[in-house]
C-alpha cells in the first residue's frame, strides 16, 4: 500500500516536470527580414565631343580631332607673332548611367619656365575662370561640361623676351574621370 502510494507520487511528479518542460519550449518566436535586391544595367561613358574653334584663332595645321574612343584630342598649330592665339572649346559628355567626377585637378604640361615667358597655355572654364574645386567639375549621368583650351603667343613682353629660335611645344591636358 505504501509502495503503491510512493509510485503514484513519483509518477505525478514526473508528469508535472514534463508538462512544465513542454510549456517552456513553446515560448519562441522567429522573425524574418526577407528582401530582393536588383542592380540596374549601367554604362560608363565619358567622352569628348563638339570641338568649337574660337573666331580669331590662327589656322591650325591640324585641327583638333577627337580619337575614336573619344578620350583624346590632338591638334597642331603654329603661332608666328606675339598676339597669335589658338583657342577652342570642347564638351566633356557623360553619356553613361554612372555619375562621374574628376579624380584630380587637370594636369597641364608642355611649357618650360623659359617658354612660359612668352607662352600662355591654359585649360579653363569657358568664361576663362580657373578650375580649382573638384566638386564643381562633377558630371552627372547625361550631363555635359564645356572647357576651353587656349594657346597664346604673349604680346605683353619685351623684345628681349622673344624666343630666338623656333620652339616646338608638346602641350597636354590630362583629365582623369572616375565614378562619383
Amino acid at each position: 500500500m505504501k509502495s503503491r502510494k510512493k509510485l503514484l507520487g513519483i509518477a505525478l511528479l514526473l508528469l508535472l516536470v514534463v508538462s512544465v518542460t513542454i510549456g517552456y519550449s513553446f515560448l519562441s518566436t522567429t522573425l524574418n527580414i526577407n528582401g530582393t535586391s536588383k542592380i540596374k544595367t549601367n554604362t560608363w561613358d565619358v567622352h569628348f565631343n563638339n570641338v568649337q574653334v574660337t573666331n580669331g584663332s590662327v589656322t591650325a595645321t591640324q585641327a583638333p580631332t577627337i580619337n575614336a574612343a573619344g578620350v583624346a584630342i590632338t591638334y597642331s598649330i603654329e603661332l608666328s607673332v606675339p598676339g597669335d592665339f589658338y583657342e577652342f572649346t570642347v564638351d566633356v559628355v557623360n553619356g553613361g548611367t554612372v555619375d562621374a567626377k574628376l579624380s584630380a585637378l587637370p594636369t597641364i604640361s608642355g611649357v618650360s619656365t623659359a617658354q612660359d615667358v612668352y607662352t600662355n597655355y591654359s585649360f579653363t572654364h569657358t568664361d576663362g575662370s580657373a578650375i580649382t574645386t573638384l566638386a564643381n567639375e562633377n558630371i552627372l549621368a547625361g550631363q555635359t561640361k564645356t572647357y576651353k583650351v587656349r594657346v597664346e603667343f604673349e604680346d605683353d613682353i619685351e623684345s628681349s623676351q622673344l624666343p630666338t629660335t623656333a620652339q616646338n611645344l608638346t602641350l597636354t591636358v590630362q583629365l582623369n574621370y572616375e565614378q562619383l
Binding site: Y24, L31, N32, G35
Partner: peptide, 27 residues
C-alpha cells in the same frame, strides 16, 4: 550582362539578389 543576370535572377526564380535574415527570440 551575364553577371547582371546572375545577380538579378537567382536560381530559385526570385528576381534580385535574395537576402534572408532570421532571428529567433525565446523566453
Amino acid at each position: 550582362a551575364e553577371q547582371l543576370a546572375l545577380i538579378n535572377e537567382t536560381a530559385d526564380g526570385h528576381t534580385g539578389a535574395t537576402s534572408l535574415f532570421t532571428i529567433t527570440y525565446s523566453q
